[in-house]
Design a protein around this nucleic acid. Sequence first.
DNA 1: CCTATGATGTTCT
DNA 2: GAACATCATAGGA
Length: 268
Amino acid sequence: MAEDDTSVPSEYFQGTRNSTKRSRQPEDKLEMQTLKKRIEANMPLSIPLTEALRVGSDFFSYDSIELANRLLGCYLVRKFEDGTVVRGMIVETEAYPGTTDVASHTYNGKRTQRNEAMYMSQGTSYVYFTYGMYYCFNIVAKIPGSAVLIRAVHPTHGEERMVINRASKRKAALTRPFKSHELCSGPSKLCIAFDIDKLQFNEQNLIGNNFLWIEQGENIPLDQIVTSTRIGISGAGRESASKLLRFYVLSNPSVSVRDKAAELAKAK
DNA sequence: CCTATGATGTTCT
DNA sequence: GAACATCATAGGA
């Protein structure tokens, strides 16, 4: 076992984002940099280290809006059956507060076979099928019926595998190869790259999951988070569509849809 | 970079 | 039968 591994207490990173403030302590940051280097250097992460980085149940114990913000900068990690690991930083999310929101699948407390996951415990994965061929991946928040849609991830590890997964569904992949920022720049694109589907992951809790989980990540400063309207919900009506419930990391190339006006207003 | 259009089939009413 | 928390492609700037 490497010396680094034993020097990192497994509980050290648990709940660092769960304090009332978003900012980390300086010594916390230092350890994170060490871990980040290991990840970037493509070094195999030992099991204890991976466990140390994983978020626990408390991480998801917030309403969908706060959770959507807190997830930015965190890592989505997927381990395949063959042991390959892919990892990416979450850079775009949407909040679906639930029963009071027309755009939410649980509006008015609606309960169907499809949306059952949204009433399960915080940290549960809600994967649904849409437009005849795509999946969307959500994480259930604290309040029953609320969830966060993961809209974009920026690849940091295992890009080769992501390309293979994405190419299986794109005919022109050979003539027009993927750029890094095209691999996971949309809710269904990331599901294809990470091989997240309903059969494997709907209603599965991400806490303690061996194949899909969230790890602590970068602390995104508030002035780097753009707040905008959600995508693809015009059918829900103006009132719901105008709500500012989409959040993304300013200037990240993997963001699916940029809101120039919101970015300009923020720059002032 | 941008906009327009067709694909596709589960899920719900 | 209608709706759909989308994407790949073609073509223009």
